[in-house]
Design a protein around this nucleic acid. Structure first.
Lengths: 140, 140
DNA sequence: ATTCTTCCTATAGTTTTAGTAGAAAGAAAG
DNA sequence: CTTTCTTTCTACTAAAACTATAGGAAGAAT
């Protein structure tokens, strides 16, 4: 029931971009240094986020990445979905047809409720809110 | 963000035991057959559930497993915790000290909220309710 | 003594995770 | 037009986790 580093690193990187939104592009190396993770690895995650349309790249000296939209318009559910594939605890609540017994399985209903609970939280939070929270915490 | 088969199989097996609660012990082989999974593998999960005190074993011919308590007194959160280790999406919301930056990390608060949302659902459902739901669904 | 079962330990194949490596391509800036 | 800093792409790999499988010992009723 754990998230992988993809989700963890990716969310933190997106928050970083949100905090510096409007201040020009941020290179992966700088983000990775700040987060204390491998820049080469973070590269892959940024690629996924870019292909999903959440960030845009500026490919040149002193380039880097910026958010594709305003932080207010990016919900955490989007970020997690890109990096983790989905927010479902089991496949059968996502892919209809992943389990042909769903109609007779009480567990299916339970996982569905769990998924909805997680999704509600992630859907209710924007990167802008995360960015503000981050700035507050840093200030202390 | 997926659960492993431990959590999935284990929950279904526990529901099975709840449905047949009071009807004597159920051998692993029968449960596995019904669930269409490997009995040898389910063995391991039952061992974990037994050591956690959720089920009791009767070791003899025509023995098997029974719930250690009434289905009304077993919450799904307990089952998932035994099998998956915890209900946390990341370690830092479980182990205080797994991350020394928690006080400065906005992501930490997000994961905390996600965990609480999941936990609320799993804590609110008992095996008895699952068993009833299962019987209803089967009836249709 | 037989039978059916749990219980214990060891092993192993496969998949996923979490990276590392190296080089090509883009574009401003000098 | 070359340098510089960056993204971008593909391939590779070590380690861990997952998903089992195997074989037999131990228990207790019958």
């Amino acid at each position: 029931m754990k998230m992988s580093t993809k989700g963890r690193y990716g969310v933190r990187a997106m928050v970083h971009l949100a905090v510096h939104y409007g201040q020009g592009p941020l290179p992966v190396r700088k983000i990775a240094d700040r987060m204390d993770v491998s820049a080469k690895y973070l590269d892959h995650l940024m690629a996924a986020l870019r292909m999903a349309g959440l960030i845009r790249s500026i490919r040149k000296a002193h380039g880097g990445y910026i958010l594709a939209r305003s932080p207010k318009e990016i919900r955490l559910s989007e970020v997690v979905k890109v990096l983790e594939g989905s927010v479902a605890p089991v496949d059968c609540v996502d892919d209809a047809g992943a389990c042909h017994q769903a109609d007779f399985c009480a567990a299916h209903d339970l996982w569905k409720r769990v998924q909805e609970a997680m999704d509600n939280v992630l859907e209710s939070v924007t990167l802008d809110e995360m960015s503000q929270r981050q700035k507050e915490k840093r200030g202390r």
